[in-house]
Simulated scan of single mutants.
Amino acid sequence: MTLPTAQGESRERAAWLRVFHDAHEQARTLVCFPHAGGTAGQYFSLSAALAPDVRVLAVQYPGRQDRCAEPAFEDVALLADEIARLLAAPRPASSPVLFGHSMGALVAFETAARLEHRYDAAPAGLIVSGMQAPYRRTASRLPGDGEEAALDALLRLGGTDPAVAGHPELRAMILPALRSDFRAATAYRPGSCPSLLSCPVTAWTGRDDGLTHGDVHAWAEHTTAAFHTRDFAGGHFYLNGFPPLIVEAVRTAVTRTTGAIVRTRTRKDI
C-alpha cells in the first residue's frame, strides 16, 4: 500500500476545509458545517466578520461546486469520520470550536465525538443550530426519497432562492447533493461513537422553526460541561447572511469556551 504524501494530504485538507480570510497568530479556530445542500461559501460572510480574531474553517462536503465530480456522502457517520481525521492530524496548537446548522449540527456533533473519543482531541466547544438533540429526532425519510422532494423541503424552510426551482442548470447543479444530504440526515441514528462530550455545548434555534423546548434543551444531555441555549427571531434559516446579532453571538460563544483573545502587538499596530 502506498502511503499518502504530505502534499497529497495538504490537497485533501484544502478540498475539505476552506479558509477565506487571514487570521493572526493567536486567533481561535471555528470549524463550520453547512446544512443539507449547503456549501462552505455560506460561511464566507461570517469569516469576514470574525477575522482576524477567529480563523474560520468552512467544511466543503463532496458532491457540490468544485467537488461535484466526487460522490456525495449519504451517511452522517462516514462524513464525520473523514472530517475528524483531517482535523485531528496534524494536531492543532489549540482546540477548535465546532459550529453546525441543521444537518451540519449532526455532522459537527458526530465529529466532536470522534475527536474526543477516537483521537483524544476534544474540541473546545460545540455550537449546534436548528436541530433537535440526536436522541430526540423523529424524522422519517422524505416522500419518494427523490430530488424533487428534497428541493421542496428546502424551499419550504427558506433555505434557497425560489428562483432555483425554475432554473434547469441550477437545479441540475444542486439537486444530486441535496438529495444525498437529505438521505443522510433522515437516516441518521446516533450511536456510532460515544456521544457524551466534555466540552461546553451551545444550542440555538429560530423562534418560528417549530422545535420544542425539549428538542433544544436535550442537547444538554450530551455534555458534562456547561450548556447554553438561545433563540433568535426567524425560522429555520434565521442565521442566513449572518447579520451582526448572529455574528456577535458566535463571537461570544467562541470566546466563552476558548477564553478572551489577546493579540500580540506588532509594528503595524504602533
Results as ranks from 00 to 15, higher is better:
118 R>Q: 13
55 R>H: 11
29 T>D: 05
179 R>D: 08
65 Q>P: 02
254 V>E: 00
85 R>C: 11
41 G>T: 13
45 S>V: 09
160 T>E: 13
42 Q>C: 11
36 A>K: 04
230 R>D: 12
6 A>M: 11
171 R>W: 10
157 L>V: 09
234 G>K: 01
36 A>R: 05
240 N>C: 04
171 R>T: 09
164 V>F: 07
118 R>F: 05
108 A>L: 06
240 N>F: 06
122 A>Y: 03
217 H>A: 13
206 G>M: 11
214 G>H: 08
188 Y>A: 07
188 Y>L: 11
250 V>C: 04
49 A>I: 00
259 G>F: 04
181 D>R: 03
87 L>Q: 03
114 R>N: 04
227 F>N: 05
23 A>S: 13
142 L>I: 08
170 L>F: 10
156 R>L: 14
53 D>S: 05
87 L>V: 06
138 T>H: 14
203 A>C: 08
97 V>E: 00
247 V>Q: 01
56 V>G: 01
117 H>S: 04
65 Q>V: 13
195 S>T: 11
60 Q>W: 06
110 E>A: 08
121 A>V: 00
34 P>F: 07
143 P>C: 10
263 R>I: 04
256 R>E: 15
58 A>G: 08
6 A>C: 02
73 F>S: 14
143 P>S: 10
75 D>Y: 01
132 Q>M: 13
212 T>N: 05
15 A>W: 08
97 V>W: 01
13 R>L: 09
218 A>W: 01
9 E>I: 12
218 A>M: 06
167 H>D: 15
264 T>G: 04
263 R>A: 14
67 R>S: 02
220 A>S: 15
248 E>L: 06
90 P>L: 13
40 A>L: 02
224 T>R: 12
51 A>V: 01
70 E>S: 10
155 L>W: 07
253 A>L: 07
92 P>G: 07
115 L>F: 02
120 D>N: 09
113 A>K: 00
236 H>G: 09
173 M>C: 02
137 R>G: 07
129 S>N: 05
81 D>F: 03
10 S>L: 14
39 T>I: 09
198 S>I: 02
55 R>A: 09
146 G>N: 15
137 R>Q: 14
253 A>E: 08
49 A>E: 01
65 Q>A: 15
84 A>V: 06
32 C>Q: 03
252 T>N: 07
119 Y>V: 07
26 Q>C: 06
255 T>P: 03
114 R>F: 06
39 T>H: 12
240 N>T: 13
157 L>D: 05
130 G>W: 04
138 T>R: 15
180 S>F: 05
216 V>A: 03
63 G>P: 01
50 L>E: 00
130 G>C: 10
110 E>Y: 04
239 L>N: 05
22 D>T: 12
217 H>E: 15
106 L>H: 00
57 L>Y: 05
142 L>Q: 08
126 L>V: 05
89 A>R: 13
179 R>P: 02
257 T>V: 15
182 F>K: 00
79 L>M: 14
29 T>V: 15
122 A>D: 05
163 A>G: 08
12 E>C: 09
209 D>V: 10
106 L>A: 15
191 G>M: 09
104 G>C: 03
216 V>T: 12
188 Y>D: 03
195 S>K: 00
31 V>S: 02
